[in-house]
């Protein structure tokens, strides 16, 4: 495993830890999109099906379990925890996320590496992950007050896929890995969706001002 891949995984893990910290310590999910979190549950559930069938490494298995358990528990907190769920911005989080699922699935049926159940679901998870942040970005744009933990959560989440791009370049150049257009293009789209957010995040960080996205 190269340094970009490890850094990417750690940033991903960090983003989830930041979100859980917010939920546990502030007992709040204000500014967090339940729609995005539900999409992540679907992403991980379809991608990590192979946890029961193929063994890669101890690291791989543990990380998959962590991502599955944490994504399910975040959704549980937002839906069912008696304090946390009251902080959910239901009226602002109106993105129709179901509309993202069907096109991603159809695309996975059409464009995949191999037409098997596992491969189509894996591909579907890549396409869906690429756009899963959209409800969250829309919610951030509507929020007047973005607290630090929420801003950092989205920043780390975006940084994770950005680092994966470097990982893929490294693997292609140094490890002579094959051309893998499906994850590369999905990852590029995913990272590009954060461009605007990154711009305002870094700007506010430099000026030490509170993060606010223009409407």
């Amino acid at each position: 495993m190269n340094v970009f891949r490890l850094a990417g995984d750690m940033t991903h893990l960090l983003s989830i830890m930041v979100l859980l910290l917010k939920i546990h310590s502030m007992k709040s999910c204000a500014g967090i999109s339940l729609k995005t979190q539900e999409l992540y549950v679907l992403v991980f559930a379809t991608r990590y099906l192979d946890i029961f069938t193929t063994y890669f490494s101890f690291y791989n298995t543990v990380m998959k379990i962590v991502f599955l358990v944490t994504s399910f528990s975040i959704v549980w907190y937002m839906r069912h925890h008696k304090v946390v769920r009251q902080t959910y911005d239901r009226d602002q989080d109106t993105f129709r996320h179901h509309l993202l699922v069907i096109p991603c699935f159809l695309l996975a049926l059409l464009i995949n590496h191999r037409f098997t159940v596992r491969e189509v679901l894996w591909t579907f998870s890549l396409y869906l992950e690429a756009v899963a942040i959209l409800p969250q970005l829309v919610l951030l744009q509507r929020s007047r007050n973005i607290d630090n933990l929420t801003g950092n959560y989205v920043f780390f989440l975006g940084a994770y896929r950005g680092l994966y791009l470097f990982n893929w370049i490294y693997r292609y150049m140094a490890e002579k890995s094959q051309l893998r257009w499906i994850p590369w293009i999905s990852g590029l789209v995913q990272t590009a969706l954060y461009a605007d957010f990154f711009y305002y995040y870094i700007k506010s960080w430099k000026k030490r001002e509170k993060l606010q996205l223009p409407a």
Binding site: R5, D50, N60, F67, H113, Y164, Q178
Partner: peptide
């Protein structure tokens, strides 16, 4: 083997 390389990422 090819599948293994594809799927070892998270």
């Amino acid at each position: 083997e090819e599948d293994k390389e594809e799927h070892d990422e998270l």
